[in-house]
C-alpha cells in the first residue's frame, strides 16, 4: 500500500500536472461564480461555503480521474494486479493519494476563496480545517470507487460525474451547511457534522470492501 502511495506522490512530483491543473481549475470555478453573483450575494456566508464546495467537488473529480488514468498508460494497472497486494490496500493507496492532493490544493484555494470574497477570517480555523478534511475524505472514498469503474468504460469523462454527483448529495448538503454555519460564526458541530462523519465512515468501509469486485476481471 505504501509502495503505491509513494509511487503516486513521486509521479506527481515528477510531472506536477495534477496539483497545478486542479489549482487553476478551482480558481476558475470560483471566478465564474464571482461573475455570476452580485456583490451582496458574495458577502453571504452561505454563498461562500457553496462556492468553496462546488470548486472542491469539480476539481476533485478531475483529480480522482487522473489517479486512474495514469495507471492506464502502458496498462500499469494490470502490473499492479500482478503484485501480491490486496485490492483493499490498492483502494486505500489511491484514496490516500487523492486526499493528499486535495489537501494541498485546498490549503491554497480555501484561504484564497475567503480572501477573494472578503469574508472574515475570524472563523474557527480548526473547524474549517476539520470540515474540509472530512469533506475531502468522504469525497475521495466514494470518488475512488466510482473512478475505478468509470476509467475502464467508454466516455469515462461523462460517466464519472453521472455516477458520483447524485451519490455525493448528502456529503455536499452537509458540508455546505457546516461550512456556512462556520463562516457565519454559528455553532457547527451539530447534526450536519455528524452526517458528514457518518458519510466518511460508511464510504471508506464500502470502498475498501467493494474494491475487489471492481478491479478483478
Amino acid at each position: 500500500m505504501w509502495a503505491i502511495l509513494w509511487k503516486d506522490l513521486l509521479l506527481e512530483l515528477r510531472t506536477k500536472e495534477r496539483v497545478s491543473s486542479l489549482f487553476v481549475l478551482a480558481l476558475l470555478i470560483i471566478l465564474v461564480f464571482v461573475f455570476a453573483l452580485t456583490p451582496e450575494q458574495l458577502k453571504q456566508p452561505a454563498f461562500g461555503s457553496a462556492l468553496l464546495w462546488v470548486a472542491l467537488v469539480f476539481a476533485g473529480m478531475l483529480s480522482i480521474q487522473r489517479a486512474f488514468i495514469l495507471e492506464q498508460e502502458r496498462n500499469c494497472f494490470a502490473g499492479l494486479l500482478l503484485c501480491p497486494i490486496d485490492p483493499g490496500q490498492v483502494f486505500f493507496a489511491k484514496f490516500l493519494s487523492n486526499v493528499c492532493f486535495l489537501i494541498i490544493v485546498e490549503a491554497v484555494v480555501a484561504p484564497l476563496t475567503l480572501a477573494l470574497l472578503s469574508l472574515s477570517f475570524s472563523v474557527s480555523l480548526l473547524g474549517l480545517v476539520l470540515v474540509l478534511l472530512c469533506g475531502i475524505v468522504g469525497f475521495s472514498a466514494l470518488g475512488t470507487l466510482c473512478a475505478a469503474i468509470a476509467v475502464r468504460t467508454r466516455a469515462r469523462e461523462i460517466i464519472l460525474p453521472l455516477m458520483l454527483l447524485p451519490l455525493l448529495v448528502p456529503l455536499f448538503i452537509a458540508a455546505v451547511n457546516v461550512t456556512g454555519a462556520l463562516l457565519a460564526g454559528e455553532a457547527w458541530t451539530g447534526t450536519w457534522f455528524r452526517i458528514l462523519v457518518a458519510f466518511d465512515v460508511i464510504f471508506v468501509v464500502t470502498g475498501w470492501l467493494a474494491f475487489g469486485f471492481v478491479v478483478q476481471e
Binding site: L145, C146, I149, A210, F213, V214
Partner: peptide, 8 residues
C-alpha cells in the same frame, strides 16, 4: 461495476 453501483 453496475452491481457495485447498485449496492452503493
Amino acid at each position: 461495476y453496475a452491481a457495485v453501483l447498485g449496492i452503493v
